[in-house]
């Protein structure tokens, strides 16, 4: 383990030497937190840190080489003080989409959720895309940061309302989201995608316009319930509620490394989001061969490439070796 730890520290340090380190707005008002690699594989968090210069942050990263780096979504007058004395002045609006919380557990479906979220943030919440940043989290999903000042001072109850808007909690078939429901149902009826007998279908089609305007009472109750259910499944944006509601959340620093995968937390240009492929775009290490010992048989799906690796000695491309070491299933050296 000693060797593995040293190897990871060396490789992460080299990364932070060269990396373009991300500078959040209001840099000095952020709290920072780190999980140093020196305790690897233990997770020990050092928090309540603050910096006044970017250079200080870089020096910190190079000398303390963290497995994980976080900064606060919140802005504080005294970011390094105790929680009660920090002087909270506001926080970015953040969203976490993790594929663990999705009906289909894949990064691709997480990306679809991000698109759904962005659309609502822009159309409904009127947030300019310039105020939005999307990051690959480095592991199982995406983070969306909203820097729009108008949302900064919202408390947790207010943010919870935004989550409810996205997840349709407390939805009573009214408002903009209801309009969307009607639009989808209208489309289903028009395209004959409703499971009813011919006669009912005929009647429904004759009242298409009314349905579009919200007259769902024209649809027989059982069919209506099922249709609404279908629409809701389509419309819900699966964000992780507590992350958005928390006004003092720590969130991963873009361009830092994720210590459980070795992946880079990538800030993604919205135009590139569709084509973003973490197995290409978030790989931080090269492919020169590295000797490792696997502690057990592993199956990994690394960007479409499936590896089934037996327990024991292997020479693997660096990115995969780092990934397996971070995961705790491989040790460095033969």
């Amino acid at each position: 383990m000693e060797l593995t730890r040293h190897y990871l520290i060396r490789r992460f340090r080299e990364y932070y030497h060269k990396a373009k380190i991300y500078e959040p707005i209001e840099f000095r008002m952020r709290e920072w937190a780190f999980v140093p690699l020196k305790n690897f594989p233990d997770f020990v968090m050092v928090r309540h840190v603050s910096f006044s210069e970017m250079e200080e942050l870089r020096e910190f990263l190079i000398s303390n080489v963290p497995a994980h780096v976080y900064f606060s979504s919140a802005y504080y007058l005294k970011p390094s003080a105790e929680m009660d004395e920090k002087g909270w002045t506001g926080a970015d609006l953040i969203f976490d989409i993790d594929y663990d919380h999705l009906p289909t557990k894949s990064l691709e479906s997480a990306k679809r959720e991000v698109f759904k979220l962005l659309r609502i943030l822009e159309k409904d919440f009127g947030i300019d895309e310039k105020e939005i940043e999307v990051c690959f989290s480095g592991n199982r999903g995406y983070h969306v940061h909203v820097y729009d000042e108008r949302f900064r001072e919202l408390g947790n109850m207010e943010r919870r309302e935004i989550v409810d808007y996205l997840t349709l909690r407390g939805f009573k078939l009214k408002g903009t989201q209801f309009d969307r429901v009607c639009k989808i149902i209208h489309r289903y009826v028009r395209d004959g995608k409703v499971n009813v007998d011919e006669k009912t279908g005929e009647i429904l089609r004759s009242s298409l316009n009314e349905i579009r305007k919200g007259r769902l009472d024209l649809i027989p109750p059982e069919v209506r319930e099922e249709l609404i259910e279908r629409c809701l499944k389509k419309l819900v944006v699966h964000v992780d509620p507590p992350v958005t509601a928390d006004v003092k959340r720590l969130i991963r620093l873009p361009n830092s490394l994720h210590g459980k995968t070795g992946f880079r937390v990538v800030l993604i240009d919205l135009n590139d989001l569709e084509s973003f492929n973490p197995y290409v775009d978030a790989v931080a290490f090269g492919d020169e061969s590295v000797k490792v010992r696997l502690l057990k048989k592993v199956r990994v799906n690394f960007g479409g490439e499936r590896y089934i690796l037996e327990r024991g000695r292997h020479s693997l491309p660096e990115y995969l070796a780092v990934f397996l070491m971070c995961r705790g299933v491989a040790l460095y050296g033969h």
């Binding site: 009127g126 408002g175 903009t176």
Partner: peptide, 21 residues
């Protein structure tokens, strides 16, 4: 900021018309 403490479902954001902010 002001509607969050109103009890009725009518005041929940998810039940409102929301456009361009």
């Amino acid at each position: 900021k002001y509607a969050v403490r109103m009890k009725s479902d009518d005041w929940k954001l998810v039940n409102r018309f929301l456009s361009k902010g």
